[in-house]
Amino acid sequence: MKKIPIKFTINGQQREALVQPNDLLINLLRDELYLTGTKYGCGIGECGACTVFLDDELVLACLILAVTVDGKEITTIEGLARGKELHPMQISFLKNAAVQCGFCTPGMIMTAISLMKENPDPSEEEIREYMRGNICRCTGYTQIIKAIKEYAHSMKG
């Protein structure tokens, strides 16, 4: 199988890679770019652990062929902080003890940020609705919902 050259922007930086048609975005990120914050939890779209932004929209890296990101922009959990300064959603997760084992956390944070872009003042019901594809086995979601609510609140005021 011949390898295909692709160019893309990852967390603000231009990159090139040679990929096989059957390479998945999740493995490009994890194994080639060493961005292991994007997690494998199921590989078939059911857990949300691999959630990243592709051209500013949430997608699941386990169900995307790496070749198809040619010319696109990808943001992963590693791309959120500005230097040592965390993204406010990351801070809100920290402050609200929304992190236990942390394996769902990157995907949760990506999804929560996307929600804020689409709906800056969500009700609790809307938060729960939006987050439903990201599963967490540890927290029971209470603190995660709280973290998102608090973030929304802080942005308002």
Binding site: T36, G37, I77, Q90, L94, K95, A97, V99, G102, T105
Partner: peptide, 12 residues
């Protein structure tokens, strides 16, 4: 906040 929480929210 947990000892390990920062490394978890940054994906590192």
């Amino acid at each position: 906040p947990r000892y390990d929480a920062r490394a978890k929210v940054t994906g590192s």
